[in-house]
Design a protein around this nucleic acid. Structure first.
Lengths: 210, 210, 210, 210
DNA sequence: GATGAATGAGACTTCATTCAT
DNA sequence: CATGAATGAAGTCTCATTCAT
């Protein structure tokens, strides 16, 4: 049953990647089998090996793909006179995304499983991963700098540190209150939490107007 | 003599558990072998099977054991008139512990790997785990309630929600800046972060004195 | 046009055969893949299957082809009054060939790998192979007979046996001192060995003149 | 079905080695499976993997073991005033061994398959193999030297070269007329051949008495 | 209590072969 | 003629688990 066109082939590859995402969010990497990934999309193990060198490679390609499509909309961090409000809007958009899109949820779960990635995978993906984290973080960092420059934000804090703090805080919130195959999550309202945090941080960071 | 033997047996069992902690911190559960656990303490696979029904059981007993010894010192949440300061002190102590104790670090890593635990393990451990989380959380919750009662804390927030928010925030901080076998941690100062957070949250939660 | 195509087809087939010789000389038959054979000549696996029924068939055709072109020059075994000298000249020419031609070396290696040929291959090729061995051997045999008839060679030896002995002796020499992918050959001078052998055998075979 | 005693374990290992010898003489290395080796002696695949790291390791141990037990009886190369006769006796004994012992035959076949050994195997075994060949060769070499010293052998030949020539010659004879799974051997009498060769070489090597 | 041999299920991979295009 | 996608059989290897001693 040989697919012929380049197009169909690419489609198969994508179907396999999607299948992998599905399965790999559902269970630990070590319990995911090539067979399973392939069968889910009506292919044979061999097909998977045609498109990917091995199991690791699937995960790698998957991660690289997801790194690109995940993250909030960077445009939200542009064009607003109030830097802090921009940051707030950005994270709120991420929460929205998470709430609405099953896919986004899955991506989150996949990344939560990163401790199980084989070193091989991790090494190849490290750069992308870092970039993904950095991208977000540096956008936030720049927004804070901007705020410091135009007098909206305290000057005695390190933009770098604050941005990574915020990243960590949201990481924690997504991890604990987001989709979690083990603790099937509460009925917590992430938006409410975000509001509280931004209210608090916002005040704490606000430059004291003379 | 029999007494002696029983003691020795318990000791062996503990040695195996410690070995398991070591190894399971180091690599994904699926790549930890019974052999490895046993060999690390100069014992044979068979011995491990004498003390534990199977591999899952080791993990289960390990988790149960750790649930008891982990967590901050609850006494810190007692006996201070300022409720919020108590909470602050409590988390700071956890950070200290983490900084000083390799063991505490390992425990953290082990729990970060929880997504890989087999359902079997998870089910049996769920209650303990929840309790561990709840214990801390409810202590914090109670401290907040107390604060609300004696007028130190705003009354329009849910103690429940705030306590889980704080938990999540610290979870994020530990996860990202704490020990992490994959991203070998930066030189971030957790205490500085904690200070910032408590400053911000403290103000936000303070009851507005008329 | 059709003519052209047929020619081209034959050329492709030959290129595949040459590639197969190359690869099959380099590693055990079982580790040679169709892909490899085809890729070496810038073709796809599928193309190879158009020209050959399967992998076995390639080896078969290869062997048949090589059987024809290998062996020393039979003309050397003709037209000399001294039969033994003819034999000697014949084998010397084989050594020369071996020394000068990489291709001849490869053929030798290929045949050294014959124990790995699948029964299927072996059965189909047996006749050719035997013929190839016999051809040489019987030429030598005839030369010996001739020598016996004209009184140059002892009459109490079996030409058959002597010819196969000589074949075996040279087989050993080629195998041990010839090209060998495993023991990358010494700096032995095959000619020197051949000289010694022929000196010794020559004397031993010479008819005792009354 | 756990065997207990060290002894029994060793026995199992040996049985596996013998089984491997059996199977590996019967077919190319690549077509021999672990399962087959184990099943032949009523064991499971797992048992084989308990005793040997992997398939390669079986072959390696097998070869090392056989290197020790193969070869002619070196005592035959001692204590005779006629050096050449000693060499002759030595090779004759090898032929005898071959004729009488099925095991010896198998060893020969195994070694004839050496071109198929994976590089890994070959590298580890190379030294032993060389030693095995060298041992024999150097014994012969010494015998020739001895002969040169006491005036029985021509002084203008290199003992080194002559000994390797003899080795090659016998290699060829064993290979072609010995057991051969592909050309199921003739009814040739190896002894007759050996006689002829030694007669010829003997005369050729004899020191010309003034 | 402890050991180490043995089992067997299950996963990863490789590749000859087929076939639609 | 040629390509390249897909299949499926077969083999290697790992390990949790069992069990006789």
């Amino acid at each position: 049953m040989a697919r012929r066109t380049r197009e169909e082939s690419l489609e198969t590859k994508n179907k396999l990647l999607e299948s992998a995402l599905e399965v790999m969010t559902d269970k630990p990497y070590s319990r995911v089998t090539m067979n399973e990934i392939a069968e889910r999309v009506g292919m044979s193990k061999g097909a998977a090996y045609w498109h990917f060198k091995n199991k690791h490679e699937i995960l790698i390609e998957l991660i690289v793909m997801l790194c690109e499509e995940s993250g909030g909309d960077p445009r939200l961090l542009e064009g607003d006179s109030d830097s802090f409000r921009k940051i707030r809007r950005y994270y709120i958009s991420r929460i929205d995304k998470q709430k609405q899109s099953k896919r986004y949820e899955k991506i989150n779960i996949l990344f939560q499983r990163r401790l199980e990635w084989p070193k091989e995978v991790h090494d190849k993906v490290y750069r992308d991963l870092m970039q993904r984290i950095r991208k977000e973080q540096s956008m936030v960092e720049m927004a804070i700098c901007e705020g410091q420059e135009n007098g909206q934000v305290r000057r005695d804090v390190s933009p770098r540190e604050i941005s990574s703090l915020i990243a960590a805080v949201f990481f924690g919130i997504f991890a604990l209150f987001g989709p979690n195959p083990l603790y099937p999550g509460g009925d917590f309202d992430l938006l409410k939490y975000a509001d509280f945090i931004f209210d608090a941080f916002g005040k704490e960071l606000k430059a004291i107007q003379a």
